[in-house]
Amino acid sequence: MWKSVAYKEWLKIRWFFILSTIFGVLAVGYIFLKVQYDFKFNDPNNYWYVLLFMKVKYFSILKFVPLIIGFAVSVTQYFPETVDKRIKLTFHLPINENKILLIMMLFGTACLLASSTLLTLIFYVLSTIYFPVDIIIPALISITPWLLSGFAIYYLVAFIILEPMWKYRLFYLVFASAIFPIFLESSIAGGFAPVNMSLAVLVIGLSISLLFSGYRFRKGEQ
């Protein structure tokens, strides 16, 4: 059964997911296109110096990429379910309703994990061409909260979309506005080192939030 649910989810999100991931890959490609250009027109040692001592982040355009991917996947996966309350058909399947929601959430999470892993791998491999680990590790520390923001926005958007009452959707939006900016705080490279683990725990906590609004949806809260 879970395979069928996963296939249904894939049909909904595939194009947006693939396109947004391609967009992410292109963004990473652009970063290194710019790095090689700067290496060519400025001496590499001066470029390293700027990264190490002038607090410049060569990867800063990645900041909103996971957010865009997470948002696109969440909207394409959950919004169609609320049109004419289609998700009610899914709830009529011979499988526990919470389990179905969790399968949907896990499928989306797996897709985001795949796209985040791909982007991180490309970013890491290309970084090793130009930079030593002393520059790459702080960069990876800095992109971690941005990657987590992709998961956070995915869970928050799903949570808000599945809520049946507009009043509470607005409340949840206030809640999301309070918690989400943490992931995008401005910081120098490596500045997120003390907090990344806590942010990961926060995201895990958010992951089951859609069970709550999904419950209210299927109980027909008006």
Binding site: N98, F175, S177, A178, I179, I182, L202, L206, I208, L211
Partner: peptide, 21 residues
């Protein structure tokens, strides 16, 4: 599980509001 998800949300919201307010 649904009740648990609500308490997770409440705890996260407390953290968020303790930052923002």
């Amino acid at each position: 599980m649904v009740k648990l998800s609500r308490y997770f949300l409440v705890v996260i919201a407390v953290i968020g509001f303790a930052i923002v307010i």
